[in-house]
Amino acid sequence: MNTILKISIFVIISGVIIAGIILPIPFIPALGDKARILYFHVPMSWIAVLAFFMSMYYSVRYLKTRDNDFDVRSYSAASLGFMFCILATATGSLWAKFSWGSFWNWDPRQTSIFILLLIYGAYFALRSAIDSDEQRAKLSSVYSIIAAVTVPFFVFIMPRLVESLHPDPIVNTQGKINMDSTMLTIFLTSLFGFTLLFLWCLNIKVRIERLNLKHLRSITG
């Protein structure tokens, strides 16, 4: 089962990469071939947010049960989410360089991903500042919940600040996805493939962290 999963992840992602680069895409005003970033950038951002809320979910479970395994999962989800968040920022600003002319110009979307990066950074800073296992799990869980409840406020605040130039309103007008069937298929497959990749990475990370914890406990007794 596991082998089949690994092979299918490999096939899906290589397929998406090849198809995303080779297959023609429909004409999108002002974007053209640059729209291909969508196959890779959107899944990264989606996973960064997904991992963030997964981390919060496990934090809540941890506080309810005090089962250390949930803290391990919460931490693993956060550290992978951080990596995907960096990838989303990098792919996004690479695209911004060619479309908007500069790597970083504080577009509302860039500001939101920047804040997500800050929250992840603060979470790890907090974790590394606490010595005791139990305290670390408890306090970082509390922090991740507090951070998560303030995130929805950006949804109200950011659009009012500056008008976004993010192509989401161009490609995705009024919630109706404006892509042709090939593009949509590649996009959804990519989303699916990268989510699977993330879940697989998460599984490995959780197992590593469990072993680390076991090792640490065997040393300290």
Binding site: L126, I130, L139
Partner: peptide
């Protein structure tokens, strides 16, 4: 927002530097 962050950092090391790091992302909105 500051009171709960203050409670969190009181249990951690390097309290002074940690406070702005933790409170800023939460306080941005």
């Amino acid at each position: 927002a500051s009171t709960i962050i203050a409670a969190i950092i009181s249990k951690a090391n390097s309290k002074g530097t940690l406070y702005p790091v933790l409170s800023f992302p939460v306080l941005i909105p």
